[in-house]
Design a protein around this nucleic acid. Structure first.
Lengths: 203, 203
DNA sequence: GTCTATATCCAGATAGAC
DNA sequence: GTCTATCTGGATATAGAC
């Protein structure tokens, strides 16, 4: 009896994951409003009525995805912060890992893209806006902190850590968007060009 | 008689400009689908029926805007190319001018944003997709050419001009999007940090 | 040229059969 | 749990009065 209940729970979770995965793919390319519930259902391979067995509305799916996207993003940056590497190496590692993610366009890259797209769009539910407002700064802060560590030990250039962090993420985001928009023309720019923004040249 | 006709033409153009300006503002923030014809009409200050006196459909307005956006963008980069400056100075000038544009959010910044948003979204008319496909590479090519000039005279680092150009525009785009999304938190990152990606350090 | 009213369409969400 | 059929609302686009 408990067995069956657990099984059902698992099935339910599995279904939800399917829905989220299809919705993520579509939202991150077409945006929230341009994505129809019918599109999601079709991509997931079942009828559109069924979606409402698992989610109350399209917005609810969107909000859940935004929530997951930020959890993952923040988690990843905190992992980065904890790594046993010097600051410059952390920056380099992050650049390479993120670009690697974008090149295989899987869920990870789509989550990143979802954040980038959702942040600029005002046609999203209030709840999603709140999540963005509350969380978007975290990754910037973590990178800024890493940069400040590197400035203390003299390996990172002595410019505003806020500006350096903004450049870090803006460049990454810009590349992610380019890659999403014009996939086949994308080439990963050489790591050391990117790194030259951060390296301290006075030695 | 001819007078009146001309006057009418001018009035008509004026109206169209109003519509385009309102539509640009809305499309560049909410996106095509999330922007309702009613929103555009309201912003422009007249009834929604009237829009159809000047445009056949919402898509038509969008396509015209995309077209203008690329004309302006390509024009601006060609102007840059022709300037009497050395290559590094052109890059620096472009960075500063573009960032200045984003900070006053006027039509110029919205056009740039429109391109950035539209490129990633699949929910746009086929005709708009074609315009994007045919034009998006131009600005990248112009910057690549400027970079190659700078490499010849030894002022710009000897890395792939394609990659350098991609970094140039991706960073600019990323900053434009950040600025659009989180306006009040935006600070223009120091020019020389950005420039250090391009400067030749072997001297 | 401009407005109001309305036809039409389409997508989100619901109901009910299986 | 899953599907099909349907209700409902809202948005595009049109028609027709002024």
């Amino acid at each position: 009896m408990g067995r069956n209940k657990e099984m059902n729970e698992l099935m339910k979770d599995e279904r939800k994951k399917q829905i989220l995965s299809s919705a993520l793919k579509l939202f991150s390319t077409k945006g929230l409003v341009a994505t129809k519930i019918a599109d999601i259902a079709k991509d997931a391979g079942f009828s559109q009525g069924l979606i409402y067995h698992y989610y109350k509305s399209k917005n609810e799916i969107f909000v859940e995805l935004i929530d997951i996207a930020f959890s993952r993003m923040i988690n990843a940056t905190l992992e980065l912060e904890k790594m046993e590497l010097e600051s410059l190496a952390k920056i380099r590692f992050a650049y390479n890992e993120l670009l690697k993610i974008y090149i295989n366009d899987d869920d990870a890259s789509r989550f990143h893209l979802l954040i980038a797209m959702a942040s600029t769009s005002e046609g999203i539910p209030e709840e999603a806006k709140n999540i963005i407002e509350q969380n978007f700064k975290k990754p910037y802060e973590v990178i800024a902190k890493i940069i400040e560590m590197g400035q203390k030990d003299g390996t990172i250039v002595l410019k505003s850590s806020v500006e350096l962090s903004m450049l870090f993420w803006s460049t990454i985001n810009g590349l992610a968007i380019y890659r999403a928009a014009h996939g086949s023309d994308f080439v990963k720019p050489d790591t050391e060009i990117f790194m030259s923004m951060f390296k301290n040249k006075e030695e």
